[in-house]
């Protein structure tokens, strides 16, 4: 057992960490955008949009992420859809999967905004879209910042599924290093854990900070 094994492999760790961070940030951004749109669909006056939003959310939310990866890699090509392997497959699967959770979090926020807010917005002549973007969503999102950050933290950890699909992020890096240094497996994995914490603990603190910053009384 030798702490030096972590220091010696720092470049590999950093490369893995960078990829994990990238997967998290890019998929997270995509999931926020798509999740907001899907949440908006679910409260839309149009039944077809509501139905689409519900099916999308339920399908993706209730399937294991690994299965979504397998579908993307093994099944979609049979229908002529060939995703670029590795990085972009991971981004697409993680985005789709996480967006369903974002949509549910935002939808609960929308439900928590009083019906009176929507009525007041309609009463001054705002269209449905304007009410949603100017009045409802800004309040809804503020009230669900803690669960949204939870979703992003879960995403940070879920990126490890990509390790099984030719993406050398943190977990894949740890596995490789462990194979190369069988005597130091525990230390090497602790190293992996520390890098995850580097990302997820500040995220939790950011949640607290944001929550206080955007708070407003109802």
């Amino acid at each position: 057992m030798d702490l030096m094994v972590i220091a010696d492999n720092m470049p590999a760790y950093l490369a893995g960490f960078r990829l994990t961070a990238q997967l998290t940030l890019v998929s997270g951004a995509g999931a926020l955008v798509i999740g907001l749109a899907v949440a908006a669909m679910r409260v839309s006056p149009l039944g077809s949009l509501r139905a689409f939003g519900a099916v999308y959310t339920e399908l993706l939310r209730n399937m294991p992420l690994t299965l979504i990866f397998f579908f993307a890699v093994l099944v979609l090509p049979q229908f002529g859809v060939v995703l670029p392997f590795g990085y972009w497959t991971a981004i697409i699967c993680l985005t789709a999967y996480t967006s369903a959770f974002v949509a549910e979090a935002v939808r609960s926020g929308i439900n928590a905004v009083g019906i009176g807010q929507a009525e007041a917005a309609r009463a001054i002549g705002l269209t449905f879209g304007q009410s949603l973007t100017s009045v409802i969503l800004p309040q809804a999102v503020r009230s669900v910042i803690p669960p949204l950050i939870n979703v992003i933290i879960a995403l940070a950890k879920n990126t490890s599924v990509a390790a099984g699909f030719a993406v050398v992020e943190l977990v894949a890096t740890g596995r490789r290093l462990a194979q190369q240094n069988p005597g130091d497996v525990m230390l090497l994995l602790v190293g992996v854990a520390v890098f995850y914490l580097l990302f997820t603990i500040p995220a939790g603190q950011l949640a607290n900070l944001l929550e206080r910053k955007v708070a407003f009384a109802r």
Partner: peptide
């Protein structure tokens, strides 16, 4: 929406935009 802009409405519970 245009029509509603022409008719002002005041609610019992004010319903001011809280944010």
């Amino acid at each position: 929406a245009r029509l509603r802009a022409d008719v002002g409405m005041v609610f019992q519970s004010f319903n001011l935009f809280a944010h």
